[in-house]
């Protein structure tokens, strides 16, 4: 738990730095790529809200991301062309879906939870594939316009980028607020010791469900912004590889650090995007997989987590782990 990163002056500093980077981003990289990057960063934050603070690893985040993307594009294409309606509709869809899926999935935790969310996400994938009249099947949905926001045209990539940035900043602020609230404290307590949390009267399943729904809604928000930004929705969005990518971004950046996943998403997307343009572009997955494996093996705190740990840890002390008396470790491993 690295709440120290996201709270107080340090939180403001790190958040401010990321925000400043976000402000200049579309002038440094191609604006549409910048849009994609911020959307994935938000998706990673949504995932961290779940994994970092409840210990639940969802391997089905793409169902909210991609599902909301479909809803958003369908609403723009067939509806009023209003950006707000499309995004709200998409988030509502993700929220209801998360509620239904969560109702089933939070009955189990750990590895089971990962496998169950993965499997349920596949249901939506196959539905999207076969309900071609609604989703365009394997061809996807293309829209000609991003819609309008209270009369403002969003077709300019930079205008749309800054809109996405504002939404993302507000969402991240919301996430920070959630994890620093009493609700977040209960989540943390549950993650550390579920039995104890239960014994003091918390209905742990309800708390987990609430976290899952929040995470799903945020992922849906990110996915709808992504789909509208790219003016398309397709099977790539609901594919399990997208869920895997979101997991990788978060762990790359640092579980439970909120800001870490933003850095992780930026790194992942940049690596992915720019490696794919180089002569070793056909080896992208080898590069990504290897980097990810190394992080898991030697740097489980993630990039931001490791930096924090190395340079900002309050005071290094040797902690004797009660369960493993034969091992002396510096700080407990971040338990997932």
């Amino acid at each position: 738990m690295s709440l120290s990163l996201i709270q107080g002056r340090r939180g403001l500093l790190v958040g401010g730095m990321l925000f400043a980077a976000g402000l200049v981003l579309p002038y440094v990289v191609y604006p549409v790529f910048a849009i994609n990057l911020v959307c994935f960063a938000l998706a990673a934050v949504s995932f961290d809200l779940l994994l970092g603070f409840t210990g639940l690893l969802s391997f089905g985040q793409a169902m909210f991301w991609g599902g909301a993307g479909y809803v958003a594009t369908i609403l723009i294409k067939g509806g009023t062309g209003s950006f707000v309606v499309a995004v709200l509709g998409a988030v509502a869809y993700a929220l209801v879906l998360a509620l239904a899926v969560g109702f089933v999935a939070v009955r189990r935790s750990g590895i089971y939870f990962a496998m169950i969310t993965l499997a349920i996400a596949e249901i939506q994938y196959f539905l999207a594939f076969q309900l071609a009249d609604l989703t365009g099947g394997e061809n996807g949905i293309q829209i000609v316009s991003r819609g309008t926001l209270f009369g403002l045209s969003l077709e300019d990539d930079k205008v749309y980028y800054y809109l996405v940035l504002v939404v993302a900043v507000l969402s991240v602020a919301f996430a920070v607020r959630v994890v620093s609230s009493p609700f977040g404290a209960v989540l943390a307590a549950m993650r550390e010791n579920e039995v104890r949390a239960r014994s003091v009267g918390y209905r742990t399943e309800s708390f987990r469900l609430a976290a899952f729904v929040m995470s799903g809604a945020l992922a849906g928000l990110a996915g709808s912004l992504f789909a509208i930004g790219n003016r398309l929705a397709g099977l790539d969005g609901v594919d399990w590889h997208t869920s895997g990518a979101i997991v990788m971004m978060t762990i790359l950046g640092g579980i439970g650090t909120i800001f870490g996943p933003i850095v992780g998403a930026a790194l992942f997307e940049s690596l992915d995007y720019f490696v794919s343009k180089t002569p070793i572009g056909d080896k992208t997955n080898i590069v990504m997989g290897t980097v990810f494996a190394i992080v898991i093996l030697v740097a489980r705190r993630g990039i931001v987590g490791e930096i924090l740990h190395r340079f900002f840890a309050p005071r290094k002390r040797l902690v004797e782990d009660e369960d493993q008396p034969d091992r002396l470790i510096v700080d407990p491993e971040p338990s997932v």
């Binding site: 191609y30 549409v32 994609n36 790219n230 003016r231 398309l232 397709g234 790539d236 343009k277 572009g281």
Partner: peptide, 20 residues
């Protein structure tokens, strides 16, 4: 040479960038 990697959004982004 632009690798679309069989991904719609990626192809759209790269095409946009190429046209620009």
């Amino acid at each position: 040479a632009i690798d679309h990697r069989n991904n719609g959004p990626e192809a759209a982004t790269k095409a946009r960038e190429a046209f620009d």
